[in-house]
Design a protein around this nucleic acid. Structure first.
Lengths: 166, 166
DNA sequence: TCCAAATAGTTCAAGTTTGAACTTTCTGTC
DNA sequence: GACAGAAAGTTCAAACTTGAACTATTTGGA
């Protein structure tokens, strides 16, 4: 194995500008979406994401470990959030009959209603901030870039929901 | 003023896939970069970002409110972080002579050393995850998309550091 | 000049996230 | 079938973030 060179390859001026703008998006976009959801629906961005995943899956139920992959969260984080959401009656946990270690999170009717109530405002803001300012080609290019980045971030691609068809 | 239509314009299947992949990037990328910085340099991503902004500015000093804009953070969050960084001697606060309400954060020698120690590993990971998997054209397209998104997120563009030339 | 409103920053309590340690159940191998 | 190790969740304390309330200055009119 050759040793790493002492100096890394620094970013060029252009790369650095691109990266700084990406950091701004990475920071502000979740904050802005989260603030809207919190205000209008009393949900954090992450809570919404959890409920929304469940609402879209056939059966509205998923193992916590799978849900953690799909939402890119640690099991610990998810466990805490699921406990809170269960206390609010938005979902419930039930043991997985197929595996004694596992639990499944199941969306309740109230949880479904919460997603349905929150979704329009959320989607409108996603459109306003991300989808509408880009034309179809640009959105495609953005998606392609994200796919490449995800290949590095998550080589197993285990976070891509298998029920979504391209 | 025409009323909003009751139903929002939902996302098309393609838009939805693009958005879901963007959410994955938004979630995982900061977490991954943060974990590396924490492990190797004892800094959160945000702390690194603050110190790194200071390290790049002429004079290594900035008003807190300007630093908050540049790092896309609330003044409250910044104030907390600056207090911690000051306790670790990585920067210090001094009153702004020009305005009795304001303080300036000034990078210390130890703070500069911390940035210099953390930067190589951080830059290497940014390259690995974002810059290198894209070719120059794709990175440009990504940057262009981010610029449009930032126009919506931050219409005043006040977060773009004026000392950076394109 | 004076005062209302705006700006800069701090603080505090409440809520969230993290990572490590732990329990329970499952799996593969001998 | 027994056991080591992996996998699924949970929990706890420490750390971090948030928003609201607060103090202290400054600014822009009347």
């Amino acid at each position: 194995m050759t040793p790493d060179s002492q100096e890394p390859r620094w970013l060029t001026a252009e790369q650095r500008l691109a990266w700084l703008d990406m950091v701004r998006v990475l920071t502000r976009l979740p904050a802005t979406l989260g603030a809207q959801l919190e205000r209008d629906a009393g949900l954090t961005f992450f809570e919404y994401h959890v409920l929304s995943m469940l609402s879209e899956i056939p059966g509205h139920a998923l193992r916590l470990s799978r849900l953690a992959q799909l939402t890119s969260s640690s099991l610990s984080r998810l466990s805490n959030v699921v406990k809170r959401l269960e206390a609010r009656d938005l979902l419930r946990r039930e043991p997985d009959p197929a595996d004694g270690r596992a639990s499944r999170a199941v969306l309740t009717a109230a949880g479904m209603a919460a997603v349905e109530q929150a979704a329009p405002g959320h989607v409108t803001l996603v459109r306003e901030l991300v989808v509408d300012p880009l034309d179809a080609v640009q959105l495609d290019q953005l998606h392609a870039a994200h796919e490449r980045i995800l290949d590095r971030l998550d080589p197993a691609s285990s976070t891509r929901p298998e029920w979504l068809e391209t």
